[in-house]
Design a protein around this nucleic acid. Structure first.
Lengths: 234, 234
DNA sequence: CCGCTCATGTGAAAAGGGTTTACATCAGGG
DNA sequence: CCCTGATGTAAACCCTTTTCACATGAGCGG
């Protein structure tokens, strides 16, 4: 039961292009025989469907229906459902990298405060782009599904790792932790917070604080454990 | 074809009952019209299938096939697939609670070392019982699917929270952190490590260390940040 | 402007599976 | 001994995946 059939048929179809008005005999409203931008439309459909029904409850056929084409059409653009999902995940990692890099802003004004922004950006992405986040981490897409996917994931992780290097650089060499390990810890912490408490699904456990506060506090304790001085310090 | 699927035919079927030898004309080998213990068999089938193909790639009908009954039979025991999954998750939380409590062992010989055991037990459970872990955290089962499920989840979390209270109790009241917050941080960290790197899926990112080492190091840093002295200390 | 060609989409159909409904079987109790 | 309710079956129904032959039309060279 859970996810009902959804309908959503006449709604979307914002295919752009096609303002020429030539209403071919083909379909209901807006376009001729050729869609014109089906690949993009399929990806938008996938994002919409994943957001609505979770990564499991989305099918190739329904994405086609949502885009207003026949069930066979998507096969001209993706080998199968998994390839579409992998492409969604790749785009997700690219958007994720951009969001994280923007938040980090090269560590300005100082790495410690920029790291707090990075954490907030992580949770904001998971909340605001649940479809991307699900495709990236919860859809069972293997990172090696394509070299581009792996590369995109690596670039996103590199932002976090760079931030950790900047923070570690402020410590005396004798007590300087490996930046890679820091990055793995913080990624795990952020992912754990996002996965367990991140979405206000009304399904998750109630918290005595917001996920952002939880992550910020965890970050504070962790960095203190490493000897990184808190925000306002000499 | 495929109907016999079985595997488990002559051997398993430890349903008791049915030792009378009355081989009804119904099916291939071992039982008559009635299965005798279908509910348990379905749950075992679900565990097997989830472990093999992930929480998404398991269907009500396939569980039925695996148990050797018709596709409609499961509906006598569970309203739908989600209810079965919720029951698996509940049992998972109960096993999880038991495993964590055993590892914690009331904080013996001392809370700090017992906490390390707890972390290892967390990862061990995620690795050794991937089907349970997936049903509990990755199958999209809402904690409020049933009161029993929520209660089981709460009891499992209570073990971790109790451990945090024991650790916090060793600190001066002036710097004593809220145990609930500690527990949420450590749960997030452990879940993040398990989800991102926990299974040797050969699909995940390669690590320069084992997940256990990663979590233990993270725990060390975090607790140090709180002022909890490391393992061998006054 | 013509006509070729190829990428793109259609329609139909096979194969496979999941869910549901009407019916069959069986165990246990009065 | 028969009734009743719990349990399982068969078959119908519907949806998805995938493939095939075919239709369309956009771009390009002539």
């Amino acid at each position: 039961m859970s996810w009902s059939r959804s309908g959503r048929d006449g709604g979307g179809r914002d295919g752009g292009r096609d303002a020429s008005g030539r209403d071919a005999p083909g379909r209901d409203s807006g376009r001729g025989y050729h869609h014109g931008n089906l690949k993009e439309a399929l990806i938008r459909a996938a994002l919409e469907l994943i957001a609505q029904k979770g990564p499991a409850g989305f099918t190739f056929a329904e994405a086609a229906r949502w885009a207003g084409v026949s069930p066979a059409a998507p096969y001209r653009h993706f080998r199968d459902r998994d390839e579409l999902m992998a492409d969604v995940a790749r785009r997700g990692f690219e958007a994720f990298e951009a969001a994280l890099a923007r938040a980090w802003d090269n560590g300005r004004p100082e790495p410690r405060t920029a790291m707090d922004r990075l954490g907030k950006a992580y949770l904001a992405f998971a909340r605001d782009e649940p479809a991307y986040y699900a495709a990236m981490f919860e859809a069972g897409v293997r990172p090696d599904a394509s070299p581009e996917l792996r590369a995109a994931g690596d670039r996103a992780f590199a932002v976090l790792r760079g931030a950790c290097e900047a923070l570690a650089a402020g410590l005396p060499a004798a007590v300087r932790p490996p930046a890679l390990m820091m990055a793995l810890h913080l990624w795990s912490l952020a992912h754990g917070v996002a996965a367990l408490f991140g979405r206000g699904d009304a399904a998750r456990r109630p918290l005595p604080m917001t996920p952002e506060e939880l992550l910020e506090a965890g970050l504070l304790v962790y960095l203190q454990g490493l000897g990184v001085p808190p925000s306002g310090a000499a």
